[in-house]
Design a protein around this nucleic acid. Structure first.
Lengths: 95, 95
DNA sequence: GTTGAATTTAGGAAAATTCCTAATTAGTCT
DNA sequence: AGACTAATTAGGAATTTTCCTAAATTCAAC
């Protein structure tokens, strides 16, 4: 859970996640979208993988990364608990 | 938005936020709940304030910090957009 | 098996974060 | 005003993060 929010704390990693909404992308395609070296992007992908936010799978000779919605939902659950949006047991006191 | 997720990335800061769910607390009371120096906690509170997650207000001779739900909801909105929970325009293609 | 393309690992420099102690400020209360 | 309390700022050491270049790995395809 710590690695999850840590992963979400970097703008490049959030942007990578946003890119993957539409479907899996190859490591190289992701790297090409940034003004950084490919190894740097690999590092970010590793952080995302460690957090459970993405998972790699081979596609031909490239490796595609897929967004793992369940991890996003885990973060969502934490925040909903904080905001009351997910209700813990409050709000059902009549008057 | 960057400072928001950055603020959420530290376990102590998330725990502070969780403490504030029930209502505002004095800086000193928050500090007392941790095994760290008070100045360190002040630093974390500053990070949270910078992110808009908390706001200070004077109460007698102490200063109470209040959780700002709207900032939590901002993070929530970002994640919902990622997960589809908040839907962008998808899911309305019949069959 | 060798070649070649895609990707990751290694090693290390620069910058940012975290946390401490000591000193200071801000405000309350007599 | 003066003393006392609550909280913050300053300054700095240890650790972690970020990002680079160069080298190694992994497969697919011939």
């Amino acid at each position: 859970m710590n690695s999850l929010f840590k992963a979400l704390s970097h703008p490049v990693r959030r942007r990578i996640i946003a890119m993957l909404r539409k479907g899996p992308l190859a490591s190289g395609d992701i790297a090409a979208a940034f003004d950084m070296s490919w190894p740097t992007i690999t590092g970010h992908l590793n952080a995302l993988k460690e957090a459970g936010l993405v998972s790699p799978e081979r596609e031909g000779q490239s490796i595609r990364y897929r967004l793992e919605i369940s991890a996003v939902e885990e973060a969502l659950a934490f925040l909903m608990d904080l905001s009351g949006t997910g209700k813990t047991d409050e709000e059902e006191t009549p008057t």
